[in-house]
Each structure stands twice: as C-alpha cells, then as structure tokens.
Simulated assay, not measured.
Amino acid sequence: MINITAAELRGIIDYMDVVTEKLYDVDGWTDIERVNRSEMGGVEVTELRLYNRYVDGDDDVQNVFVRYYGMNDETPDNKIVVEVEVE
C-alpha cells in the first residue's frame, strides 16, 4: 500500500501525477493504463493496471486501486488523502 499525505499534494493540480510518479518508482513497471474511474460514497476510486513489457506471463500485470478522499486548505499536512493498493 502506498499512502500519500496532504502535504505531498499541496500545490499539485492533479493528484494522479503524484500517484503515477510513485507507481513508476516501484521496480519493474513500465506502463500504466487507466481502466475505470468512479465515485463511491464521496471517495474517488480509480482502477489502473501496471504492465511490465519485459516479462512474459501472468507476472507482467498488476491491478491497482487508487482511493482519493479529497482535501482542502484546512486539511492537516499529515492526513492521508490518497491510498494506492497494488494487488
């Protein structure tokens, strides 16, 4: 699980830029595809797939779920506002 705090998103226009950067930091992933984006109970949920074009077989794809809880100027810097779960 990758957690992103409000402090990491201050001044960032699109939180997915930070998510993408962190996912590419995970060793081995070469491509990211957005599969679905929806809102459930006030939480924005984005489903992604990570691919490794250098690996053949089942190990070359991972599903990722990104949950964005939202934030504003009053959100404490240490509050987790994005959770990224790689399955």
Rank of each mutant, 00 (worst) to 15 (best):
residue 2 I to D: 00
residue 2 I to S: 00
residue 3 N to Y: 11
residue 3 N to R: 14
residue 3 N to E: 15
residue 4 I to P: 00
residue 4 I to D: 01
residue 7 A to G: 09
residue 8 E to R: 02
residue 8 E to Q: 09
residue 8 E to F: 01
residue 8 E to A: 05
residue 8 E to Y: 04
residue 8 E to I: 01
residue 9 L to A: 04
residue 10 R to S: 12
residue 10 R to V: 11
residue 11 G to E: 05
residue 11 G to H: 04
residue 11 G to M: 03
residue 11 G to K: 03
residue 12 I to R: 10
residue 12 I to M: 09
residue 13 I to Q: 12
residue 13 I to N: 10
residue 13 I to M: 06
residue 15 Y to G: 03
residue 16 M to T: 10
residue 16 M to P: 02
residue 17 D to V: 07
residue 17 D to W: 05
residue 18 V to S: 02
residue 19 V to Y: 00
residue 20 T to F: 03
residue 20 T to M: 04
residue 21 E to H: 07
residue 22 K to C: 02
residue 23 L to S: 05
residue 24 Y to I: 01
residue 24 Y to M: 06
residue 25 D to E: 15
residue 25 D to I: 05
residue 26 V to W: 02
residue 26 V to R: 11
residue 26 V to P: 00
residue 26 V to S: 03
residue 27 D to M: 12
residue 27 D to S: 13
residue 28 G to C: 07
residue 28 G to D: 07
residue 29 W to Q: 07
residue 29 W to E: 07
residue 29 W to I: 08
residue 29 W to S: 06
residue 31 D to Y: 12
residue 32 I to V: 11
residue 32 I to E: 03
residue 33 E to Y: 12
residue 34 R to L: 15
residue 34 R to I: 14
residue 35 V to A: 06
residue 36 N to E: 13
residue 37 R to H: 01
residue 37 R to C: 03
residue 39 E to K: 11
residue 40 M to S: 10
residue 40 M to F: 07
residue 41 G to I: 09
residue 41 G to R: 14
residue 42 G to V: 12
residue 42 G to D: 13
residue 42 G to F: 13
residue 43 V to M: 09
residue 43 V to S: 08
residue 44 E to R: 13
residue 45 V to C: 08
residue 46 T to Q: 06
residue 47 E to Q: 08
residue 48 L to A: 01
residue 48 L to Y: 03
residue 48 L to V: 01
residue 50 L to P: 07
residue 50 L to V: 12
residue 51 Y to P: 00
residue 51 Y to M: 06
residue 51 Y to G: 02
residue 52 N to H: 06
residue 53 R to Y: 15
residue 54 Y to Q: 12
residue 54 Y to L: 13
residue 54 Y to W: 14
residue 56 D to A: 15
residue 57 G to W: 07
residue 58 D to K: 14
residue 58 D to I: 14
residue 59 D to F: 09
residue 59 D to A: 14
residue 60 D to M: 11
residue 60 D to L: 07
residue 60 D to T: 08
residue 61 V to G: 01
residue 63 N to E: 10
residue 63 N to Y: 10
residue 65 F to D: 00
residue 67 R to L: 06
residue 67 R to N: 10
residue 68 Y to S: 01
residue 71 M to N: 04
residue 71 M to D: 04
residue 71 M to P: 04
residue 72 N to G: 08
residue 72 N to D: 15
residue 75 T to A: 11
residue 77 D to G: 06
residue 77 D to E: 13
residue 77 D to N: 14
residue 78 N to H: 10
residue 78 N to P: 02
residue 79 K to N: 09
residue 79 K to S: 09
residue 79 K to T: 13
residue 80 I to V: 15
residue 80 I to N: 05
residue 80 I to R: 05
residue 80 I to D: 03
residue 80 I to G: 03
residue 81 V to G: 04
residue 81 V to E: 04
residue 81 V to S: 06
residue 81 V to K: 03
residue 82 V to R: 02
residue 84 V to C: 05
residue 84 V to E: 01
residue 85 E to K: 11
residue 85 E to N: 14
residue 85 E to R: 09
residue 85 E to I: 11
residue 85 E to M: 11
residue 86 V to C: 01
residue 86 V to S: 00
residue 86 V to L: 14
residue 87 E to S: 10
residue 87 E to L: 12
